[in-house]
Design a protein around this nucleic acid. Structure first.
Lengths: 256, 256
DNA sequence: CGAATAGTGTCTCTTAGACAATATGAA
DNA sequence: TTCATATTGTCTAAGAGACACTATTCG
């Protein structure tokens, strides 16, 4: 058996080792802008990604994903969380690891094996930061625009992969909740899904998600203390029922 | 902005760097053993995982996942593929990356950030190798048994995660095909799914997968050159229709 | 009342789910 | 003929999908 390096005699320092294990974080947010036409109207929503402009070699001046090197005393998740915190001041948001990028030569500084996370952040959490550093070297870009840009390193690929991943997860998990307030209307949920997955279309969305036995339990109506339905009219004249996600999960299957 | 290490002045050799980037591979296979009672009967199938016994420090004598260190000239996927090839002689099988393990202190040899893959291999591909090294330091273990063992490093956790991952993917993707011949019967498919996901039960499985409009296209009947249905009686007196997977995919969704 | 969003009625066709019943062919 | 697997019949209740229709309330 020639195979098991871990099982062979181990001589520290004998091998070439990586020059660093960075994490890169694809920070998504959905911005809402009101239509000017009417006051009460569904806002325009757009999926955006946070990029920073590099100040030094390599890729000086180019836009890149935020990130940084892992320390020996933390794991990759802690590293990404720390970088996210340092970059946006945001904590306690949904962040998930999705892939490793280890193509030889991907970083001119040396052998860097990068770990990519995506984070979903509500616009309001980014608000202060954006005010602080506006017109600085940190900016939100619409994803479609970012995809066209020549990003540093292989960050274009990472962004593309991340986008595919959250599109998939938007439909198969409840990450939609990360872009929504605790209590939301059916339209808001529908809009969020469509913002991330433009192809998504369900004509009878409200019925499928509320009145169907198999889906009952994914979300539930919110009531006030008196047990009366709680509604919102932030987007319409006619008040809309508010819902919240439950904690129930659901196993999807091709075969059932 | 204190955050972007990649954007700050870069001084090579200034930081502590990892001591290695290994890959670990969870190699799954499904073994079939015939029931002794009758010749033509559905075989007993069992999900097994390949482990190796370590010959040296650390964790000498303990069982571990196969794997090895990444070289500077290859990416992690190539590394895992090479290790799999060296370990089992197997090539061209389904292998997928699923997580990184970077807990500080997980490897007494130093700062090792490990990348975990799972591979799905048909028993027949392992047959030669097993004959070669039988009663040696490479063995298949039933997963339930392996989960009870004290594996080296954090390999117990990795195995648990891998198992959860393939259970999920067994139901949401067509990885079942990796455990099946090109042409298979409905019972075989059903058995494979149940072997990986013991809770899976569909009473009307055959109809759901063949006669349902929404699922039409996942598998298709095999016919011979004359257009006649191709059947197999390897498990039963009554011959069963053979099917194959098509290339059609299907987007699962909680919301539709 | 018109605009804009929220939500219901209704109809048809398909599917889910449960079981019973029948089919096949070697031992 | 029996046995083990393969496959179809049948019935009911529920869901999918399409689209027209009603509801609410601000301006």
């Amino acid at each position: 058996m020639t195979t098991n390096d871990q099982g062979s005699n181990y001589t520290p320092g004998r091998y070439r080792t990586p020059d660093g294990a960075p994490s890169d974080i694809v920070i998504f947010t959905i911005t809402s802008t009101e239509k000017k036409t009417a006051k009460k109207a569904l806002p325009l929503r757009e999926l955006q990604v946070l990029l920073i402009q590099r100040k030094s070699w390599p890729f000086e001046g180019q836009w890149a994903l935020p990130g940084g090197f892992c320390k020996e005393t933390e794991d990759m998740y802690a590293c990404a969380k720390r970088e996210l915190q340092e970059e946006t001041g945001v904590t306690n948001v949904h962040m998930a690891y999705f892939n490793v990028y280890s193509q030889p030569g991907r970083d001119p500084r040396g052998w860097m094996i990068s770990h990519a996370f995506f984070a979903l952040v509500q616009e309001k959490w980014l608000a202060e930061r954006r005010a602080d550093t506006d017109a600085e070297d940190v900016r939100l870009f619409p994803v479609e625009e970012a995809l066209q840009m020549a990003l540093a390193f292989d960050h274009g690929v990472i962004l593309r992969d991340a986008l595919q991943k959250i599109r998939e997860q938007m439909l198969t998990t409840v990450i939609a909740k990360e872009f929504l307030p605790e209590e939301f209307t059916i339209s808001e949920l529908y809009q969020v899904i469509q913002t991330v997955v433009p192809d998504f279309e369900e004509r009878n969305f409200i019925r499928k998600i509320t009145s169907t036995q198999s889906r009952k339990g994914l979300i539930e109506e919110v009531t006030d203390r008196g047990g009366q339905p709680k509604v919102s009219n932030r987007y319409s004249q006619r008040a809309a029922q508010l819902y919240r996600f439950t904690n129930l999960t659901q196993q999807l299957s091709l075969y059932s």
